[in-house]
Every structure is written in structure tokens, then in C-alpha cells.
């Protein structure tokens, strides 16, 4: 029996942790159980930078690795988003309601999907290499140095959760209640949204898209008795389980190959997640009926 190495196992753990947390945060700030990094356009946002980077590498001829270039663009934009919002942007941000963000996010995802398809066609028509592997997240290709970056991000995330988990617990009961408990709603939502965006983009830049995980993992873990009634525990500890699940799933994909080819863990999670989502939707429908 072949064993996956520890670095890959830990990277898979961190991916699962970050995606699950990202999903929980998006659901909390939108108070919508069907919200996810995908529906808020975060997947599309991160994929766009990878596409732009691939265009530059292919057509401009810049000799650099795709992940490095894409991460630079992503980080630069993210820093600009935080540090230099114009007064107008601040006004827009303050009045933009979550439901409008969801609509924009879905629209943006569709747009990026269309761009991805067109570019894929053009790249193949001109016999250029295209990052098709982006569409299904996989941990097959990684560098040892990535673990240090992920570990550093993990420490930052823990600090954020330590300072914000109580406020997010209040937010679970509604904006009005949270406000009455002294929570700065706009600041808390912004912080959670930005972190969610960063975590999603970070994972996608390194390893591709893991469809549905951000949506379905929080729902699965919320059904466990330790997290069913305690949002603070869910925020603080459920992502650990999610990380372990994804790490095990990745190990399974590595071990159980198809004619020697390794299934991308993002593809497997996408298929499983879509069935679970259908089941969840039906169950929610029955409950309302």
C-alpha cells in the first residue's frame, strides 16, 4: 500500500479547513443556508486571475509559473481592495445589501464560466496549453514550500476567529440582535466576507476549484451534535473535521486510481456535493411543505 506524503496530507487538510470555513462565513453573513463562495462569485473571481495569468504566460511569453503569477495578481488586487477603497466604493459597500451581492456573484460566476469556455476553445484551436486542471481541484501538483504559506495563513485565521467568533455567533441570530449586543455589523460582515474571499481565492490559485464544498461541508457538519446548536463551536472546530475529511478523500483519490490516472479530489467532491445538495434542497422543500 502506498501512502501519501505528510505535506500533501496537510495541504489537503488546510484546503478542506479553509473551504469549509469560507462556506460557513458566507452563509452567516448572508443569513442564507444556500450561500457559498461560489454563489457570491468568489470562485469566479479567483479563476479569473488564473485565466489572466495563463493568457500573459502564453501570449506575452513571460516565463514564470502560473501559480506564482496568479497569486501575485490576486494578492495585489486584494490589498488594493482593503487599503485603497475610494469614498464612493465605501458608500457603495455600505449600502450594497447581501442579496444584491449574491445576485452579482452568481452573474459574475456565469460570466467567468463563459470566458473560461471561450478561452479554452481559443487555446485548443491555437494548440496552446490551457489550465484545464483548474476546473477540478487537485492536490497532485504541489511544492513543499506551499505548506509554510498555508500554515501561516492558518495561524492568521485562528487569530481572526478568536477575535470574531462571538460576534459571528450573535450574527447567527440576526443583524438586529447582533447590533443590540454591540456588534458592528458592517465591520463584522466585511471582515468575514474578505476573509472568505481570500481563503477561497488562495485555495483555488494553488489547487483549483472544489465545487460545492463550501456549500455542503457546513451543512454536513452542522448536523453533528457538537455543532448542531452552537455556531461558535461550528466556526471554531467544524473546519478541522472538514479538513480531515478532505485529506482522507484526497488520500482515497490518490490510492484508488482509474487505470493509473488519479481522480481530482475536486471532481469527486463536486459529484458527491451535487447529490448532497439535491438531497438537502428536497429535504428543505419537504420541511417547508
Amino acid at each position: 500500500m502506498e501512502y501519501i506524503d505528510l505535506t500533501r496530507f496537510l495541504l489537503a487538510f488546510f484546503c478542506g479547513y479553509f473551504i469549509c470555513l469560507s462556506g460557513t462565513l458566507t452563509q452567516l453573513i448572508s443569513n442564507n443556508p444556500l450561500a457559498s463562495p461560489s454563489t457570491l462569485g468568489m470562485d469566479g473571481f479567483a479563476v479569473l486571475f488564473v485565466i489572466i495569468s495563463q493568457l500573459i504566460i502564453t501570449f506575452v511569453g513571460v516565463e514564470t509559473d502560473l501559480i506564482g503569477l496568479s497569486m501575485r495578481f490576486f494578492l495585489l488586487f486584494f490589498v488594493l481592495l482593503i487599503i485603497f477603497p475610494s469614498k464612493k466604493t465605501r458608500e457603495v459597500w455600505d449600502i450594497l445589501e447581501i442579496r444584491n451581492i449574491i445576485i452579482l456573484g452568481i452573474t459574475f460566476n456565469l460570466f467567468v464560466g463563459a470566458v473560461f469556455t471561450i478561452l479554452q476553445f481559443l487555446f485548443l484551436a491555437y494548440n496552446f496549453e490551457f489550465p484545464t486542471g483548474l476546473w477540478f481541484g487537485s492536490l497532485k501538483i504541489y511544492t513543499d514550500s506551499a505548506i509554510y504559506i498555508f500554515a501561516l495563513l492558518f495561524v492568521f485565521v485562528k487569530f481572526f476567529l478568536f477575535t470574531q467568533s462571538q460576534k459571528l455567533q450573535f450574527l447567527n441570530l440576526g443583524r438586529s440582535f447582533a447590533t443590540s449586543m454591540g456588534v458592528d455589523i458592517v465591520k463584522t460582515q466585511k471582515g468575514a466576507l474578505l476573509l472568505s474571499l481570500f481563503l477561497t481565492g488562495f485555495v483555488i490559485n494553488f489547487f483549483g476549484v472544489f465545487s460545492f464544498l463550501g456549500l455542503i461541508l457546513p451543512h454536513i457538519l452542522r448536523r453533528l451534535k457538537w455543532f448542531r446548536i452552537d455556531m461558535r463551536k461550528e466556526i471554531m472546530y467544524a473546519p478541522y473535521l472538514a479538513g480531515a475529511l478532505i485529506a482522507l478523500l484526497d488520500w482515497a483519490c490518490y490510492y484508488f486510481t482509474v487505470n493509473g490516472a488519479e481522480l481530482p479530489v475536486g471532481m469527486v467532491s463536486g459529484i458527491l456535493g451535487s447529490f448532497l445538495l439535491i438531497g438537502l434542497s428536497i429535504k428543505s422543500g419537504f420541511r417547508r411543505a
Partner: peptide, 10 residues
């Protein structure tokens, strides 16, 4: 506004 927690707290 209705109280509508994401989880199943009573």
C-alpha cells in the same frame, strides 16, 4: 425581523 438562525438551536 424574524429570528432565523442557520443552525437548529431551540
Amino acid at each position: 425581523m424574524r429570528l432565523s438562525p442557520l443552525n437548529e438551536i431551540s
